[in-house]
Nucleic acid binder design. Structure first.
Lengths: 207, 207
DNA sequence: GCTTCTCTTGAACGATCGTTCAACAACCCA
DNA sequence: TGGGTTGTTGAACGATCGTTCAAGAGAAGC
């Protein structure tokens, strides 16, 4: 179909744009930069996208939808809150490590969106945060009380996970599994004093 | 002295600029915006500062120097690694909560610096990280082994602390002391399995 | 062969950007 | 009173920005 070709090219365009946005930042990247990076003329970009803002929005909302979908799949049928938390973290970090550019754009360029675009992504963000908060609430009733404010805990976890674009190199010595196990152990050990055993840790399966 | 007046006005200018940069982002903020916010004409800004880049650099390097100086003071004479870690966290969060705009600019606009400016701030960042890494290494030899990769632990802690500009409201219900205690408990509990007692927690004295 | 639809383009638009500069006011010291 | 330093300004500079548009290429359907 012609629609397929168009859709595929849009996908490729978004991937190129995410790479450049992650590297130079959204506002420092010009549409001319994107044209060069994607091999299309400047005017040609506007056949696939209405504006630079929509480009940013599409990158963010699509990435976020993929994260949420992965989370939904990994939580199906899992009721134990510790397991749910481990899978929540595992999913987030897996996607982050395998889609570093997109997730950096999602994390770092949150303030660059405006209007309906901003509202839509913020709604997803609220739902996603709610899932984590509910798991933590579950954890509080089934384990010893945490002594750590739940909001502080939730956003600290997001901080650990979303900060990694500032330092982590997916191609370096440090494997994703070490990263995921570290974050899981830090958070679970700190939040409920639970030493996370080897076999209950995420196996950090890719993608 | 005339030099004092000039220096004071520069300080005020940097404070205004930090506020606007934190709100709208560095690249979205024009020199005309800063002129309006500081009550000086556009051209007048260039009497105090050589360029927009230098403005950003001054905000970042001065804030970082203040953080480092506060840390140095709080670590004097303290040898117990747990206490050193608690004070490191306490200092970082205290400064963050009392200088939210500057620290957001320091955290979020790290990639906006270039050349010598970037190099200088990165050097400070490396030294500062080294202090934390040394504390963690100390912690490893005096407590049970951590089972958490040290680099992962260090950057996770920075993630928890530097992410707060994305969600924390210093004027809201959540006090700085709750924030600091939460982060300390999360990290220490997770890193060395240590339940942090009430009296050993930072008292979160303001700046 | 002709029309239609999809895709791409060079060239231009007005707006806004960071920065500069000559000019001027206000003050200090002689 | 007059010269020099300090502080401030409006107006302009060239560059770059996001976006538009008329025009054309190429394949598809008749």
């Amino acid at each position: 179909m012609a629609n397929d070709a168009r859709s595929n090219k849009l996908d490729a365009l978004l991937a190129d744009a995410a790479r450049v946005f992650a590297q130079r930042g959204f506002h420092r990247t010009s549409m001319r930069d994107l044209a060069k990076a994607s091999g299309v003329s400047l005017a040609g970009l506007y056949y696939y996208v209405e504006s630079k803002d929509e480009l940013l929005y599409l990158i963010q909302t699509r990435s976020f939808e993929a994260v949420i979908q992965g989370m939904d799949e990994r939580l199906i049928g899992v009721t134990d809150p510790v397991q749910r938390l481990l899978r929540f973290i595992e999913n987030h970090l897996d996607y982050f490590a395998t889609h570093m550019s997109e997730m950096k754009v999602l994390s770092h360029e949150a303030g660059a969106l405006t209007g309906d675009f901003l509202h839509d992504v913020n709604e997803k963000k609220r739902d996603y945060t709610r899932v984590l908060m509910d798991i933590l609430a579950d954890l509080d009733t089934t384990s010893m009380p945490a002594h750590v404010n739940r909001r502080v805990a939730a956003y600290s976890l997001f901080g650990m996970m979303n900060w990694i674009y500032n330092w982590y190199d997916p191609l370096g010595d440090l494997g994703v599994e070490v990263l995921a196990q570290g974050v899981c152990r830090l958070f679970l050990g700190g939040y409920i004093g639970l030493p996370v055993s080897e076999h209950s840790l995420p196996h950090a399966s890719a993608g």
